[in-house]
């Protein structure tokens, strides 16, 4: 961090600035009026990934210059009510389109259906709405996003190749019930069965570094012969790697991960992490906005528009 952010840190610590919460950040051209208005409903901006995504979207809209963006965030990953309120807010403001990364693949559907009935175009990003629920509501909302399962499979395959058949692995899961966490676990188990690995244990560490550290050290005690770890995000991987270091088994246990956050880079370089997956979060919302503009222009989009995933290795 540079000097400027240090000063910001001091200022924030001193004044105890309030939480960002409902940020109503606004790009250029707020007053143009004739440009279409697109609401962007995000998940918790306390999460680096979504923060990047939102900033990417704002940059993207500035480059396009032909729409007005209203980005809305929520307090925490599971703040479903907050997202529902955000969608309702956008319906009231009569936006032309809503791009949404739903906090829950079912609960958010009814407000979104209300938006559709109000004539608003809706594009689903990041986590897909549940197909069965969509059918019940009689809608087919286009999903723009990465295939978490396929991504995890790519990462898992790297580990399978490195260990060979019969390698003993564990999975560190994300929040139980979080759709991307579930998909990544499925992708990892796909890789395990395809590569003939043995799954010794699988536990959640709630996306959290310290918890991953604790949980994995305990798994390591219970199963001395662990050879590989598949971790559902990079934050947890940081804790896992520290646990391996602390146990003095650096280099013996191989780790694959997901997300490609900056803090994971040194570990990739050192070879402590074999692979991670970049789902280009910063571009995801931009892609969603592009598709929303297409719908406003009259196109009808359905199904899954897959966004790129990239396997990142040292």
């Amino acid at each position: 961090m540079d000097r400027r952010s240090f000063l910001a840190a001091c200022a924030a610590a001193g004044t105890l600035a309030a939480a960002p919460g409902f940020a109503l950040a606004q790009g250029t051209g707020a007053q143009t009026g004739r440009k279409p208005v697109v609401g962007l409903v995000m998940k918790s901006l306390a999460n680096e990934f979504f923060k990047d995504m939102q900033e990417g979207a704002v940059r993207h809209v500035q480059e396009r210059g032909d729409l007005t963006l209203i980005p809305l965030g929520i307090q925490s990953e599971t703040d479903i009510d907050g997202q529902i309120a955000a969608v309702e807010n956008l319906i009231t403001r009569k936006v032309d389109a809503i791009v949404i990364a739903p906090a829950d693949s079912r609960a958010l559907l009814s407000p979104v259906v209300r938006a559709i009935h109000a004539g608003i175009k809706v594009v689903n990003i990041d986590v897909a709405f549940d197909p069965a629920s969509m059918k019940k509501h009689g809608v087919d909302i286009v999903f723009v996003g990465p295939d978490n399962r396929a991504g995890a499979r790519m990462s898992g395959d790297v580990l399978a190749k490195a260990l060979g058949r019969g390698g003993k692995v564990v999975i560190i899961e994300g929040n139980p019930g979080a759709e991307n966490g579930v998909q990544r676990k499925l992708g990892y188990t796909d890789a395990i069965s395809a590569g003939g690995l043995t799954l010794v244990d699988s536990r959640t560490a709630h996306w959290e570094t310290e918890e991953a550290n604790t949980v994995f050290s305990n798994m390591l005690t219970a199963h001395h012969d662990i050879q590989g770890v598949m971790s559902a995000n990079d934050s947890m991987t940081l804790g896992v790697v520290k646990a391996i270091d602390a146990a003095g088994r650096s280099g013996q246990i191989k780790v694959v991960s997901f997300d490609n956050i900056p803090a994971i880079q040194p570990l990739l370089k050192d070879g402590k992490v074999l692979a991670t997956v970049d789902q280009f979060g910063a571009q995801l919302a931009g892609d969603g906005i592009d598709n929303a503009m297409k719908e406003i222009a009259g196109q009808t989009l359905t199904g899954w528009i897959r966004t790129p995933l990239k396997l990142v290795t040292a």
Binding site: M1, S5, A8, A9, A12, A13, L16, A17, A18, A19, P20, G21, L45, A46, N47, E48, K51, S235, L238, I261, P262, A263, P266
Partner: peptide, 15 residues
């Protein structure tokens, strides 16, 4: 919590 997010812009500090 808000101040911590503000200080870091939600980023992880490492190294």
């Amino acid at each position: 919590r808000g101040a911590a997010l503000e200080v870091t812009n939600a980023r992880t500090i490492y190294d």
